[in-house]
Nucleic acid binder design. Structure first.
Lengths: 119, 119, 119, 119
DNA sequence: GTGGTCTAGACCACG
DNA sequence: GTGGTCTAGACCACC
């Protein structure tokens, strides 16, 4: 499904959450389709089930997945609203980096007008 | 000189290093001019001297400052070469974020061509 | 008859019990009229028969339904006394939430006097 | 500071989070003042440190607290914006319960107009 | 000392 | 079987 790296500074649960989030937002995992169970994914990635649960919790608090006790965990049916939030986030990041560039004396007006087109 | 924020997830030594770096790269602190001593800056910011040490160590390892035994610590004389590295770093970051946007289905060609102009 | 939602944190047996309860209390299902059998309702809603059993058990313990051996399960003949209990329950809930609001510094006297009129 | 109940159906970490949240939103714990450390509170309440951390995580994700590695955990400096969210939540709950009452044939217009005054 | 991450177990409610 | 909660430990970065 995807791989995690242990010699990476970002915690495992973030790596897992990020990977699954990407699969859902890009449509590889379809809306309302089931995700691997906590135990299943834990054994596949050879990590502790608690670590997977922490990853799934983060996704759930962001509205990307939902869980049904005794049934399993599923991708959100409303991918688009989540996507919008994510897009805004990345645009903000670019805008932030562009500001740092401008502090270093670089002209970033071109970038900023491009961002406005997207926003 | 500058302020640090505790209600921020980035470690204090990174905030200190970042602030001093900015002052040097933007020319507020001039090349070859002396920096405040560890003890001085630590008491001014009301943080642990070890934290300042760590910040200065990072700046030195990046070539932004240099130290002279018995004299103190100074801003690099070659600001420009450091600046170039920094600019490249921010451009890479924007490029990275733009890729994430494009994974979400956003057209980022405008941004990328703007980046090419700068690079 | 009614629908259940899986993308909901409340257990299915509670959703089923709640839906049937509402149908009975609002008179859509008339007093002493028969309810669908466990197997029938389970297949209609595509859930496990055990889940329906649990829902019916809860309704019976609350006096909303009664069962006759060999005949089936029926809506209570005395809807009104059940209704009063439910009304009291909701008023208590509102009163509880109003208290929380008042703890946050909101004036809820208007709401409380309205509740007294109903009670 | 406060007590938790083990023979309660709500999980311990929710009880802890709820109690602390209340203390902060009502001003008993002042903005930017330190909260008990994970280990300290865990031993005081005789529960596992992980359980306390889960409670603190919830508060942090809701913007009610913030943490500084190596320094401790603090109440948010902006209590009001959190408070507004909470107030809206309770008003929504009352509105929801009022709808259930109206489904049972009770006139709830008085309550709803009172809610409008607050909103 | 602090918070953050992770492991290896256990027990519960739900279906 | 599933997710949710909890315990009892360990190790790390930060200050």
């Amino acid at each position: 499904m995807f791989a995690i790296s242990l010699n990476n500074h970002s915690p495992i649960h973030e790596q897992v959450a990020g990977s699954i989030e990407k699969l859902i937002l890009t449509g590889v995992i379809e809306p309302d389709s089931p995700l691997p169970s906590v135990r299943e994914l834990a054994s596949e990635l050879a990590v502790n089930p608690n670590t997977i649960q922490k990853a799934y919790f983060k996704l759930e608090s962001e509205g990307i997945t939902y869980s049904v006790a005794g049934k399993g965990r599923f991708a959100t049916s409303d991918v688009n609203s989540v996507k919008k939030v994510k897009i805004k986030h990345h645009i903000d990041n670019i805008s932030y980096e562009a500001n740092l560039l401008s502090e270093l004396g670089i002209d970033v007006n071109g970038i900023l007008t491009e961002l406005e087109k997207i926003r």
